[in-house]
């Protein structure tokens, strides 16, 4: 029972983290139609920035997160301008380009951090929140959950209440029709990848103190992001958030009882099943050709 409650809470926290980068992937795919294979590496760069600035050079944790977000956003913007925009007519070309970026970022991280073992960042927030005698959550995780929820809430508000948000959703639905309405789709693409990359940088910043940081950590991130995106429905942000929380719960429980590899295998099988049974995902809408 205690393990059960603890797993639920951990699942929620993990879910918030999953949602942060999955939503970014969905945004980029929705608006630009390109699968950003380097999305996991964006998270990795965020985490590495924290390690370098906070753990090595002693910059405060919050300012380090800020720098991480800005740095990753810039990488995202460069990718849009120089890779995704010229290859817009061919989605496969965009995907291949992002694989190239993946290699380059991994090497950059290796050059910065060295070839050695995985890096660790000591948690900046010490102490534990004691809800009950058996339910103790480190403040670091509480902070991570709060920030993810705030970021996702802000994004939701931005997309549904602001003019830019409406324009962005319009481009995601129908690029041509949106252009006819006078929406500058290039600017919207920039905003989409900027927001997506910023969220990835934030996710990297939040996860840095909770995990082992190495240049190849993006691999697991991108697998998770794919599972969450497909299960949630490719175009649906709400679906992605819901699927992130559900998958995080599932993954946490499976890991506790069967181990991490089995948990990931189950996630992948779940994804294939969703692709067969309901390709539009749990929150997706069927679009006729």
């Amino acid at each position: 029972m205690e393990l059960f409650l603890l797993s639920i809470v951990n699942g929620l926290i993990q879910g918030g983290f999953f949602a942060l980068f999955a939503v970014g992937l969905v945004l980029i795919f929705g608006v630009m139609g390109v699968v950003n294979f380097a999305h996991g590496e964006l998270v990795m760069v965020g985490a590495f920035t924290i390690w370098l600035l906070h753990a090595q050079y002693g910059l405060g944790y919050i300012p380090a997160i800020m720098v991480a977000i800005i740095l990753v956003t810039i990488i995202g913007l460069l990718m849009e301008r120089f890779l995704f925009r010229p290859t817009r007519s061919d989605p496969l070309a965009g995907l291949i380009c992002s694989i190239g970026v993946l290699f380059i970022l991994q090497v950059a991280a290796t050059l910065v951090g060295g070839d050695g073992p995985s890096k660790q960042v000591p948690p900046p927030f010490e102490g534990t929140l004691v809800l009950f005698e058996f339910l103790r959550i480190p403040y670091q995780r509480v902070f991570s959950l709060l920030i993810s929820v705030t970021a996702l809430g802000t994004l939701w508000f931005f997309l549904t209440r602001s003019k830019f948000g409406w324009a962005l959703r319009a481009v995601a639905q129908d690029r041509e029709a949106a252009s006819l309405q006078g929406i500058n789709s290039n600017r919207i693409s920039i905003i989409a990848i900027g927001v997506g990359a910023a969220l990835a940088g934030l996710a990297g910043g939040l996860v840095a103190p909770l995990t082992n940081i190495n240049p190849h950590m993006g691999h697991n991130v991108i697998i998770t992001a794919f599972i969450v995106t497909i299960v949630g429905g490719v175009g649906s942000l709400l679906g992605a958030v819901l699927a992130a929380v559900l998958y995080a719960m599932l993954h946490t429980f499976m890991t506790v009882y069967f181990g991490g590899t089995i948990a990931t295998i189950c996630g992948l099988i779940l994804m294939v099943v969703v692709l067969i049974v309901k390709p539009s995902g749990i929150m997706g809408v069927r679009v006729s050709e």
């Binding site: 010229p86 290859t87 380009c97 190239g100 290699f103 380059i104 090497v107």
Partner: peptide, 16 residues
């Protein structure tokens, strides 16, 4: 160490 990055750059350049 640089090899994957060089590969990545070749890939991007050839696609573009």
């Amino acid at each position: 160490v640089l090899r994957p990055a060089i590969y990545g750059a070749v890939l991007i350049l050839s696609v573009l």
